[in-house]
Design a binder for these strands. Structure first.
Lengths: 227, 227
DNA sequence: GGCTATCATCTGGCATGCCAGTTGAAATGT
DNA sequence: ACATTTCAACTGGCATGCCAGATGATAGCC
């Protein structure tokens, strides 16, 4: 895989948690994880340190490592942070002199096409790419890193939500409007749009989460494998 | 100290770096740090993982752990992120129904008194507390944690800057105006104020940094102690 | 039966030993 | 004298062993 077992472990565990392979609130021991992944406790422990710093797990001394659930309040908090950061990035783009909005324009078009074809997966890819590229384009790498780290935490929820809701026609309009505001360098309009867009997105996601239980309908498969 | 050597090590190293006891760009080995702190490599290594995640150090395999310098670009990026997050918190306070602005009002008064007495240390304490409490009061713990983590990175620079510049009379006005905007629930004004305030603060800090070299005038003392 | 004390077994915390990659100065050849 | 090679002394990566605290099934008591 990569050049470091710690890195591999970190990525494997993070992805497993975000995809839902570890049921929230379950306890895991470093020995157990190490055995499953095939190497020793040390890289696993170091990876767990990082996951704990990310807020994905909680280490309980002499009890185990608990996978933290994604609660409604967490979604609310994460979305708020993401909104603040992405708005800052958008404002930066809106006031920047040299900028290339071509990729973003293409992605908006891509989303429109995906909607016409009712292709949810294609739409979600373009949507992810739009927000991703927008934040990347602002030039602040710290901001981008923090944004992606937070946003990644809700990937799982968004993925399930996509198949449970109506086609996101409203979101497509929002994106187009946001891009236009950036083009026109209209920061006041941007602030409005972002507040509307994220408030609605958050509410939609929360409604789905509450309807389907606070944890997404994914169960751990590893627990059973082990026995 | 606390209940975990890893935690102790993390806090000790983080504080040492932020206070300037480790010269930027110096390489350290985990064995060396462990010997100085008095325990073994394991807790030191786990603490270093977290410091690397914070962006304070960089681990170079088989070379050492490099203390990252605080460059002008870093200050720019950090201030931008902090501004975005604090503005979001301020807007939250401005639109919240039940809120207690008493502590913030007291801190604004405190800053005014400190200015009259030309007491820089008292002023900086009140200033820190103002921003701290403002972000805490918004109720989004994630946002608060990220804000403080980022802001902490520039503590060192701000501390030195304080004694090298004029009394921050302008900042005091800004804070008062910000609080008033929150009281009047005037979010548009808040946006303006935040952009002005942080742009000026960033520019001031950068000017001082560039005048005094990209790294603050602090040298490592530990290197010598060791010999 | 119900309650309590016990203890084998589990956990994370930490120390330590070995490995392989990197380095820079000494040893070597020209 | 200089360029090249070599190698001892580092480094972080990883595995492993021991420890003390926490747990829960069980044995013992009332």
């Amino acid at each position: 895989m990569s050049r470091s077992l710690t890195q591999d472990t970190y990525e494997a565990l993070r992805s497993a948690i975000l995809v839902g392979k570890f049921a929230p609130d379950t306890l895991w021991s470093d020995r157990e994880l190490a055995a499953q992944l095939g190497f020793s406790r040390t890289p696993v422990r170091e990876a767990i340190q990082r996951l704990a710093a990310d807020g994905l797990v909680e280490v309980i001394p002499r009890r185990g490592t608990r996978v933290l659930p994604l609660l409604a309040d967490d979604v609310r908090e994460i979305h708020q942070v993401a909104r603040a950061l992405e708005l800052e990035a958008a404002i930066m783009l809106a006031t920047s002199r040299k900028r290339d909005l071509g990729p973003l324009q293409r992605l908006v078009a891509e989303m429109a096409e995906a909607l016409e074809a009712a292709d949810r997966d294609r739409w979600v890819r373009a949507d992810e790419a739009f927000h991703h590229d927008l934040v990347e384009a602002c030039g602040n790498r710290r901001l981008a890193r923090m944004y992606h780290a937070q946003r990644g935490l809700t990937d799982r929820a968004r993925y399930f939500a996509l198949h449970l809701r109506d086609l996101p026609t409203k979101s497509a309009d929002d994106h187009r409007a946001m891009l236009e505001a950036i083009e026109r360098r209209d920061t006041a309009r941007l602030c409005e749009l972002y507040h509307e867009h994220w408030d609605r997105t958050t509410a939609e996601l929360l409604a789905l989460i509450e309807r389907h239980g606070s944890t997404m309908p994914v169960q751990s498969t590893l627990r059973e494998e082990k026995k």
